[in-house]
């Protein structure tokens, strides 16, 4: 009641984003669900290793191959390690790989694509040919090759995942920058004395964000799958480090003998993570697009 009329628009602007987020979540419950899952994964990654009931590396041969029970929610593996603890602890590693590779390719691929679309000419040619070269390989095989050549480290998995995603980012950013290079507001920015790079980064880049956000979310799921896949075939993280891909690989041998839980729970978690990021993409796009915020 004490608010003066002049302060009203400011308050409105502050709550605008929250209200908008609430609107998106309520309008599309699937988006809300994926936001919830995302927060869960985030929490597991941040505090997981401190709250899990068992040490993920401690083996207990007496309790080996125990099915899911109250003591071991997801059961135990052939060495008696608690699968629930391992799944939760693995979240941090898998998410780190995914986020780091996506952040890397977002910056590098995004910038390359923006420059290609905006400047055209030889910049466009160079970026275009790099994309073509990468796309010429089956992406997973290329990632395998990179990791095999550079060595079996987390850094190289991040690098390989980023490289195979490069064309996706570069092409989307290129298309978005290209349609705007002669837009009225870009001309106006030139008249305002903005240099070319400032126009590209200050004026055009923000307009490409909504679609790039969708791209981030979609490739985040792919990056997780890629990292797990590399580990699955033995080219990524090495055992006994808890990692979803390795756990599925280790459990695969026991499915035929009936111990389904060893591969099942890490597999389901992997699926949920990919699923969550794919759905998140749509929600994110709505959140960052000012046109939808009315």
């Amino acid at each position: 009641m004490t608010a003066t009329p002049t302060s009203l628009p400011a308050e409105k602007a502050a709550t605008g984003l929250l209200a908008h987020a609430r609107h998106i979540v309520t309008e599309n419950p699937v988006t809300g669900l994926s936001f919830g899952l995302f927060i869960l994964f985030l929490l597991a990654g941040l505090v997981g290793p401190h709250v899990v009931p068992y040490d993920p590396l401690a083996s207990d041969t007496a309790a080996a191959l125990a099915p899911p029970s109250a003591a071991h929610w997801f059961g135990t593996d052939q060495l008696g390690r608690d699968i629930f603890s391992r799944v939760v602890v693995a979240t941090r590693l898998d998410m780190t790989i995914a986020i780091a590779s996506v952040a890397l390719v977002f910056v590098v691929g995004g910038l390359a694509g923006l420059a290609a679309g905006y400047f055209g000419g030889w910049t466009d040619q160079v970026v275009g040919r790099i994309c073509d070269t990468i796309m010429a390989f089956p992406l997973f095989v290329l990632a395998m090759g990179i990791v095999a050549a550079l060595g079996n480290t987390v850094t190289n998995i991040v690098l390989a995942t980023a490289i195979v995603n490069f064309p996706l980012y570069a092409r989307v950013a290129r298309a978005e920058a290209n349609v705007r290079r002669d837009a009225g507001f870009v001309q106006a920015a030139r008249l305002c004395g903005n240099g070319e790079w400032r126009i590209l980064l200050g004026q055009i880049m923000p307009n490409t964000l909504p679609i790039m956000m969708v791209q981030v979310s979609l490739t985040m799921g792919y990056a997780i799958l890629n990292a797990a896949g590399l580990s699955f075939i033995g080219l990524g993280v090495r055992p006994p480090t808890p990692e979803w891909g390795i756990m599925v690989a280790e459990g695969a041998a026991f499915i035929v003998s009936g111990e389904w839980w060893i591969a099942f729970f890490p597999g389901v978690t992997l699926m949920l993570a990919v699923f969550c990021f794919n759905l998140l993409g749509d929600g994110l796009r709505d959140l960052v697009d000012p046109q939808r915020r009315t």
Binding site: Q187, A188, L191, G193, Q203, P206, Q291
Partner: peptide, 22 residues
């Protein structure tokens, strides 16, 4: 854009929507 003369020559565009960054 870097010339001191830039500020002395300005323009109003045809399409007011297109000329403002959304």
């Amino acid at each position: 854009a870097r010339s001191p003369l830039r500020r002395r020559i300005q323009m109003v565009f045809q399409d007011p929507t297109d000329s403002l960054n959304p």
